[in-house]
Amino acid sequence: MPKSITYKANSVIYFQGDQSDRIFILKSGKVLLKTQDIETGKEITEIINTGEFFGVKSALGRYIRDETCISISDAEVLAFTVPEFEQLALSNTRIIMKMLKVFSNQLRRIHHKVENMLRKGEEVDAETGLYKVGDYYFNNRQFAQAAFALSRYLTYYPQGKHATQATLRLQEAERYAASGNPGSKGTPQQARPSAGAMQGMTGTGASRSSGGAKEYYEAVGLISQEKYQEALNILYKIISNNSDPENMAKAEFEVGRCLTHLKKFDEAIRHFTALIQKYPKHPDLKEALFLIGKSYEGKGDKPWARSFYEKVISLSQEDEPTAIRAKKAMQSLTGGAV
């Protein structure tokens, strides 16, 4: 049971440097926390109001008290041990959420200060930083890792200042990654080059001149025959050959469609999510959202499937084929749930 303790005005509840597992909540009166700013060493004070917790971080993190705590009026507190506090928090998760927000903020800020101290002025912006990570792995011949970082770079900064260089390096990294371990099965990021780039190596010149259009139709033809894996191989080739942008975008969409049909739902969801980020105005956006819904449904995740179908319907005219299919899918979801 949490213990109720009363303090006269100007009593020390705990000293900075004390070790304790008590967490307090202020029931009445006023309490002051005194600590020093870590940068300037100046004293900082914070008033605790009734109903607020204090002493939480040091007790939960099992370290010494970070501040001195003094009652500035007669005060009554409830003292919890860590297990008692946990019990309270678990039955009232809003407490956890609230503290999580505060702590995450503090952590972010102090982390930033430490980073600045270590980097001493050579602050890099996130865009260049991400590119440099790719660059580092590329230079160290860790091509799969380089391909990952560079493709992330291009996802977030398709028009970025290192985009041209990143595209070139990505192609090269993917080629090396594929030839380095041709049998590797890896993730989509790794599987993609090994499926496409190998065949693409000889055909690069030819396919670039056609902009990938011919291959694209070939792939679509295969999809209509339900030969999804074969279609995928061609689609990856179109993408890794850096074909005409329009064909690239179309090919990327078809990759997702194939993955959905191949029941690689996680890959499909990831692929479409990245696609939507990359091409927020993709002509097949609604269809992509619909297929994300389908993939979630395939995974048995009905709530997520439903929310994507709803999204499709909200974005579409009522009589659009995609909307009609989304509605049907919603109905069969509910049907299945009852």
Partner: peptide
């Protein structure tokens, strides 16, 4: 989630 909160507490201290 509560464990994450504990980790945060510890990391804030470590970083400080």
């Amino acid at each position: 989630v509560l464990n994450i909160l504990k980790i945060f507490s510890k990391r804030i201290y470590d970083q400080k």
